[in-house]
Amino acid sequence: MTALLHWLTFLLSIILLPVLTLGTIRKTKARLQNRIGPPICQPIYDLVKLSRKGETISSTMCGVFRLSSLLAFADILVLAWLTPWLCFKPWAPHSNIFMVVYLFAFARMFTLLGSLDSGSAFGAFSASREATLSLLVEPAVLLALVSLGIFFGSSDLRVIFSHQTNQTFTDSAIWIAAGLAIFFSSLVELSRMPVDDPTTHLELTMIHEAMILEASGRNLALIEFAHALKMSIFFGLASQCFLRAFPQFNTFNVYSQGGLNIVGILGLALFVGLLESLIVKLQWRKVPEFIAYILSLSLIASLAAIGAGVIK
């Protein structure tokens, strides 16, 4: 019975959490701009509406375009299954750090292929920008996860995120530095505010939006949902890092841990909404500088992990 309950909650959170995360960000931004804004569940209605609509496909496209969004969605679903972004998963599979990072890259590759296949000028340049960004941010994500791996002596994310440690100062410092690095690199990976404005209407400044410009109907619904799910996976990992920095977290039972986890994801979404209302989009040439700051956070985490290993 409890197993069934676990499965149900897991499936529900895979379906609902991405939507709620997106809805929270939009609601926060709307409230800060003195608008009432759409209800938090609005992304669900949007997805339902999109899946009912018909789609228009350019005559230059081959099958890659249709297939790519489907494959990217499947890839992200596998990742939702593999990564320990929620701490109440019914069955925890092995998930190697490198496999997870490159499965994310794999999903992005499909999106890039789809945007190139559409044959529009915007698709090509946004694909090139997205590829550049992923190239720049990859070492930051990898170093942050690897620093946790070094510290806990395993390259398996499941082992890292279920570790019962005697919490010391270095433990918390590494968790917080790695969590910050994962969170900020997720802003780049998901092309959110300091790097790309998700609500922009000018195609020349878009990154992610220009890639999915040609998608419509069910295709667009799939892409949007995969993107939101990717966002909640990243926020889930980051929020767990922050929560595990507190020694008390390990003493809670699994329900309150799960509840705190979900609150953490939504809290990060709230923070992103706040961030997006307060700061402006960076110039494209300034983005590497921003990513350098993220990389230095991961560097701090990995050096601290190595140092802790040396002291032991």
Binding site: E289, A292, Y293, L295, S296, L299, I300, L303, I306
Partner: peptide, 13 residues
């Protein structure tokens, strides 16, 4: 400057 910052962190360690 970004590289210098990374160098500063290495010097920190």
């Amino acid at each position: 400057p970004p590289l210098a910052m990374h160098a500063a962190i290495l010097l920190f360690s």
